[in-house]
Nucleic acid binder design. Structure first.
Lengths: 212, 212
DNA sequence: AAGACACGGGGGGTTTTTCCCGAAAACCTA
DNA sequence: TAGGTTTTCGGGAAAAACCCCCCGTGTCTT
């Protein structure tokens, strides 16, 4: 029996094109297509509409790919989600994988690669391209775990930096020389590859070092 | 018949002290005291334990005052919640009021004021001190609705400012002179009462002008 | 004991940011 | 069309942020 696929993408033309590709594979068949996550969740209320694999766009209106995947993962853990996106954005890829996607394909994927990806997801449970693997490796090395790279004192400084205080004032509060504070800043900029304090603030908030 | 009061505060000593005050008022009596919101909700399962007024601390473990008030408001809308806190933090006050509190008292409140507050809550349904009223007025004047104070072009600039770009670069991207950008910045600092770019970034994120 | 390294701190210079001023130019609006 | 407001821009200067190179003091390792 053929494996069932559902395509979720607000770009109808594209979802149909992908559906066409899938129909060309003898092991797979398209159950239906959806425009966004909410529509998909509606469909799933009828068990007949639950497929083996969901090909999910990341950027969608109403309910985006990340949230949809997370909800699917919780309610229907047997359904494999394969992300499909034009964006090669690191954080997006990571977010999708964290949400539970079994793979992440670029939308300009070749027909044959789509097929092997689908097959691998059925057989191995996942399919990761080189790009994705690289992102994964990077994520655990430097940036992603600030706790390992950043020292206690630096984290403390960062919290102060997410404030209207000047470095001079931060130095006073931490009972250190302004020069030492500068040293912290430089070290952090280097490690995190930042250009200025604004970048640091955004980083701190994204990584929950500082909660606004 | 006396009006019934429940005191919720993790600081047992304080809740007993307040209980003592209340017992001194001839119109009121203390039903019992709780250490946190969860305990209170447990108690409420028995209708006999539902009082007229809850004197609620804001900072508590397990279930804090804001969440507790929100749940109470939903499940037991007839119970009047009066917030009780040491903190004069604007956002906290607003959060409590939004959650449905009928008033917000500082913990160093005088005995007589506590009594009038309780009476007003029973009679008028609310009691607001000058501090709270001021916070409320402020909240609807400037800061709270950025949309009304900030113009389109300024909002656009703010989004750029939440980036590692320098003002020079932002000017280029917006096709304006760096001096114009400075003008925007100054106007925004003035309106929002900010000291520097870091403050602007935090403001933008808190008010969802920029989503990190 | 000598090198490696983490930590706190300094000198001095460039770039950005911040601030205070004023003023064309464009835009309503009466 | 005159008059006011908004938008755009500029000069100049002080403050803050950013950058590079260096030093002493510990601590740990080899």
């Amino acid at each position: 029996m053929k494996h069932s696929i559902v395509v979720v993408d607000d770009h109808v033309l594209l979802s149909q094109a992908i559906g066409g590709l899938v129909e060309g594979f003898e092991q797979f068949t398209v159950l239906y297509t959806c425009k966004h996550g909410q529509e998909l969740l509606e469909k799933f209320k009828n068990p007949k509409n639950i497929p083996d694999i969901v090909l999910m766009d990341v950027n969608m209106p109403i309910l985006n790919g990340i949230e949809t995947t997370a909800q699917l993962q919780e309610k229907y853990p047997d359904v494999k989600v394969l992300a499909l996106s034009i964006e090669e954005d690191e954080t997006l890829i990571l977010k999708m994988l964290r949400a539970g996607a079994k793979g992440y394909l670029m939308k300009d994927v070749k027909k044959s690669e789509l097929q092997t990806a689908l097959m691998e997801v059925i057989e191995k449970g996942f399919h990761h391209t080189n790009t994705v693997t690289k992102v994964l490796v990077d994520s655990l090395s430097e940036k992603n775990n600030p706790n390992s790279v950043l020292k206690e004192r630096e984290l403390e400084f960062i919290k102060h930096a997410c404030t209207e205080k000047t470095y001079r004032e931060i130095a006073d509060e931490m009972c250190l020389s302004p020069k030492t504070i500068e040293g912290y800043r430089n070290a952090i900029f280097e490690k995190l590859n930042l250009r200025n304090r604004t970048g640091l603030v955004i980083y701190a908030i994204r990584n929950k070092i500082f909660v606004p």
